[in-house]
């Protein structure tokens, strides 16, 4: 049996690519869930505003989904020229084939020169696909941008955050994801962005993927990428009850989000959505508390930009102490309940 279609991508509309021009026209792909805008979107908008301020230009948002009117409305006050919206039942689930198709189409139709989104599993799925549809290149996890004489150079992290690379990106359209922590949300602008609805012809959308199910653990705690304080647990935690009691307990005392090392996720103690690191989430809260985490470079890659790092570990040699502002050599089973107790009694 051979299912191979044997043909290259059809991309007739990509012929309408813009010519190289002095002014940037950025498109920020918005991210949302359960009808709510994800705050990381504003970091991508912050990047776009920075580029516009330095090199001249404007930016638009693009919202893809079903029933996203409130999300679009929420985006009107951040200095964008337009909020482009494709609202259709076919876009209900964030399937890469359809979302990338519409993103590429919007880029072609609007003369976009730069596409940007906050680094997330959604943008990492969709942006490279859309870039390739337009024969464009991409840079991931950008942390800084410089405009020099009509061109741009970008800084990005490589080798598990150990190396800072300076790179250029050629071509009429550039695709980028940015590290949310590296860019602040743009200041609220006086005018309101115009909301423009894009027509969606469902029959023309690619159909390689079918959504089946989603498993999400609903939690009253904030997401680690959005929280001011993150408490993370490592292999020192032996059961999910213990994790909940110590890591969850301290998190609640601090109004914090919870995170975990890969070891704990692999052991099945907590869901994958809690993993912090090179291959999990990158966070940079005001305060990061690492409980029984050794500090492997793959973990540090996801948290070493936090403003204040606290480590509690019983091994004085643990590498986590090399990045911690405050290190306490202690058994978490003693130190954490004491900490929670004293925080609660304040």
């Amino acid at each position: 049996m051979n299912f191979w279609p044997g043909s290259a991508t059809k991309r007739g509309w990509s012929e309408r690519r813009p010519s190289v021009e002095a002014l940037s026209h950025l498109l920020v792909l918005a991210e949302h869930a359960h009808g709510r805008l994800k705050p990381v979107t504003l970091a991508a908008a912050g990047f776009a505003a920075q580029v516009c301020a330095r090199a001249g230009g404007t930016f638009d948002f693009l919202v893809l989904g079903e029933g996203v009117g409130a999300v679009a409305e929420a985006l009107r006050t951040y200095g964008a020229a337009r909020v482009l919206v494709a609202d259709h039942p076919a876009l209900r689930e964030p399937l890469a084939d359809k979302h990338a198709h519409l993103l590429a189409q919007a880029v072609g139709a609007c003369g976009v020169t730069m596409v940007v989104a906050a680094a997330s599993t959604y943008s990492k799925d969709v942006l490279p696909r859309a870039a390739a549809l337009l024969d464009a290149g991409m840079l991931s996890e950008v942390v800084a941008v410089q405009a020099d004489g009509g061109g741009f150079t970008f800084q990005r992290l490589m080798f598990a955050g150990n190396v800072l690379g300076t790179a250029t990106l050629e071509g009429p359209v550039r695709f980028l994801t940015v590290r949310p922590a590296a860019f602040a949300a743009p200041a609220s602008a006086p005018g309101l962005a115009v909301v423009e609805m894009l027509a969606v012809e469902a029959v023309t959308l690619p159909n390689y993927l079918t959504f089946q199910a989603r498993e999400e653990k609903v939690s009253a705690r904030p997401d680690a990428t959005e929280a001011r304080v993150v408490v993370a647990g490592g292999r020192a935690l032996k059961t999910s009850q213990e994790f909940e009691q110590l890591v969850g307990g301290l998190a609640d005392a601090l109004g914090a989000a919870v995170g975990a090392s890969r070891a704990v996720v692999d052991a099945g103690l907590v869901p994958n959505s809690l993993q912090i690191g090179q291959t999990g989430k990158a966070v940079a809260p005001e305060l990061y508390v690492a409980l029984g985490i050794s500090g492997a470079i793959q973990h540090l890659a996801g948290m070493k930009d936090s403003r204040v790092i606290v480590a509690i570990n019983r091994d004085p040699e643990a590498p986590i102490f090399e990045v911690a502002d405050y290190g306490l050599i202690a058994d978490i089973h003693q130190a954490v309940p004491e900490l929670v107790d004293k925080l609660r009694r304040r």
């Binding site: 399937l95 599993t121 959604y122 993927l209 959504f211 989603r214 498993e215 869901p271």
Partner: peptide, 9 residues
């Protein structure tokens, strides 16, 4: 594996 959990397609 996604940022919010897992998804089956």
């Amino acid at each position: 594996e996604t940022d919010s959990g897992t998804e089956t397609v």
